[in-house]
Design a protein around this nucleic acid. Structure first.
Lengths: 150, 150
DNA sequence: TTCATGATTGAATATTATTCAAGAAATATA
DNA sequence: TATATTTCTTGAATAATATTCAATCATGAA
């Protein structure tokens, strides 16, 4: 058998979907050409960044979700984006924010389990500039990416 | 003019998109019927929960993003899901997690600005059971919903 | 009012999703 | 091991959908 699923999941994580114009037109009771026109305008103007899938992450082997608070070394305070941009490429990272408060950065990370999370931490969070981290693991998700789950 | 955009944004937040089968088939060099079959199976088995859009949230008037740590009263420790389920319905909430550590719950909230956030806090976080909160505002997002932004 | 720009829409066309039936591959059962 | 059963793959045909185009309408500026 071909492992189509694994490849589909990768594609769906950040794209390869598209609006259902005909269905939207029925829902909003407007002509499909009007819907089409508006969707294209929103894309051109950059309101929409991507069309993607939301998964039952447990079922795709990414059931372990952790929020990571990050403290940067003083010489990185002026440029937290540098560290952030290095992290963007890690597929386990769902979101990266530079934040107010006692910590400089907040990540949301998805892995299979705690072992895989440990591997991620060793690889990704040993960057120059990161001096301290604190992990908050999710015991249960009720909503993610605006979608009600569970 | 009809305000189509506002309505499209609402629909796109948690659905009304669909996989681009033909495009995926070209990308993966597989017959489109094989792709179709696998996508449907993933939907039936519940691997995929929704197909939706990711926005430039600043451009759709939701530029202010805040993570909210929540502490529950001792009599809610045994049932944090009760509070969580009450919060699910708020459209400003992107994610809800029950977490390990000093706090019981973590929300990700999107509003237009700090004023609208304040309105949200008054309405949503005055629930019985919530005894303390701490807001970490996002100064800059580098990645959200697995999609690189900015 | 007139003009320019952007939004809405129906009709025609191009592209795509879906169904169906047949066969191949994997798995279960004897 | 043989055989049955289930799941997966695939091409051909059809149904549904997206897209293009040109005309019309609405809006705001000059």
């Amino acid at each position: 058998m071909k492992d189509i699923r694994r490849r589909l999941i990768e594609l769906f994580k950040n794209g390869y979907c598209t609006p259902r114009i005909a269905r939207i037109a029925r829902e909003l009771q407007e002509p499909s050409t009007t819907i089409h026109y508006n969707i294209k305008r929103m894309e051109i103007e950059g309101l929409t960044k991507a069309y993607k899938a939301v998964f039952d992450y447990k079922k795709i082997g990414e059931g372990f979700c952790t929020y990571v608070l990050i403290s940067l070394s003083p010489d990185e305070y002026g440029n937290p984006e540098r560290v952030g941009r290095e992290l963007v490429r890690f597929p386990q990272i769902e979101s990266i924010d530079i934040i107010t408060g006692d910590w400089e950065m907040l990540l949301k990370v998805r892995t299979k389990d705690i072992e895989e999370y440990y591997e991620f931490v060793k690889k990704a969070l040993s960057k120059k500039g990161i001096v301290k981290t604190k992990s908050l693991s999710s015991l249960r998700q009720l909503k993610t990416e605006f979608v009600k789950v569970d």
